[in-house]
């Protein structure tokens, strides 16, 4: 730890005041006189001045920064939100609608749960997968319970035949509509 005299302590305190320009001429002369005698304080003063100058130069371009904000934005920020005279009624209607929906959903969930627990008809047979289409079937067939499921599969002529306008497709060969012949150039 470095021991400092009282005058050195005062000088160190005054360095910042000198740099900030808030020291009168008498104190400044006193500081200069002390720095002339004490090399430690002279060093400190020189370092402080060098840093002060560097800071001044570094911050100089930043001091030119400016904003284009207009006072109108402050007025906008201060303006209260417009209050509608029907706002309380609208709020009440909204709350009622929300309550009704909540009650309806709760009743539906409760009734579904009660119906699921009650003994009744057996559960329907599981769906069977057929050609990518789910079809419900009944396990037990009788004369009164049968149905057809007719899947219509269109067959189209080979592409080479379609491109040749001289080859006609016989009507009624399948259930698909006869496609129009397309010229090869149109496909490119």
């Amino acid at each position: 730890m470095t021991l400092m005299s009282r005058s050195c302590r005062i000088a160190q305190d005054q360095i910042v005041a000198v740099l900030a320009g808030s020291v009168d001429l008498r104190d400044r002369r006193a500081l200069d006189a002390h720095a002339a005698r004490c090399y430690r304080c002279a060093d400190a003063l020189r370092d402080a001045v060098a840093t002060h100058v560097a800071l001044g130069r570094a911050f100089a371009p930043l001091r030119a920064a400016h904003t284009l904000v207009a006072p109108g934005r402050v007025r906008l920020a201060l303006r209260p939100a417009p209050a509608s005279p029907f706002a309380p009624l609208f709020g009440l209607a909204t709350r009622l609608a929300e309550g009704t929906v909540a009650l309806g959903v709760s009743a539906f969930i409760l009734s579904s749960a009660v119906a699921g627990m009650a003994p009744g008809e057996p559960a329907p047979a599981p769906a069977e997968q057929s050609d990518g289409v789910a079809v419900h079937v009944s396990r037990s067939f009788d004369d009164t319970q049968f149905f057809y499921r007719w899947v219509r599969i269109g067959r189209y002529a080979p592409i080479n035949d379609l491109l040749d306008p001289s080859i006609g497709i016989p009507r009624g060969a399948d259930d698909a509509d006869t496609p129009e012949p397309v010229r090869e150039s149109a496909l490119r």
């Binding site: 740099l19 020189r46 002060h52 130069r57």
Partner: peptide, 21 residues
């Protein structure tokens, strides 16, 4: 500081002129 330390005797004769930016 380096420049100042190079001076002989580390003593100043003229007062420091501080020109705040």
């Amino acid at each position: 500081r380096a420049a100042f330390m190079a001076s002989p005797g580390r003593q100043r004769t003229a007062p420091l002129i501080v020109e705040p930016v």
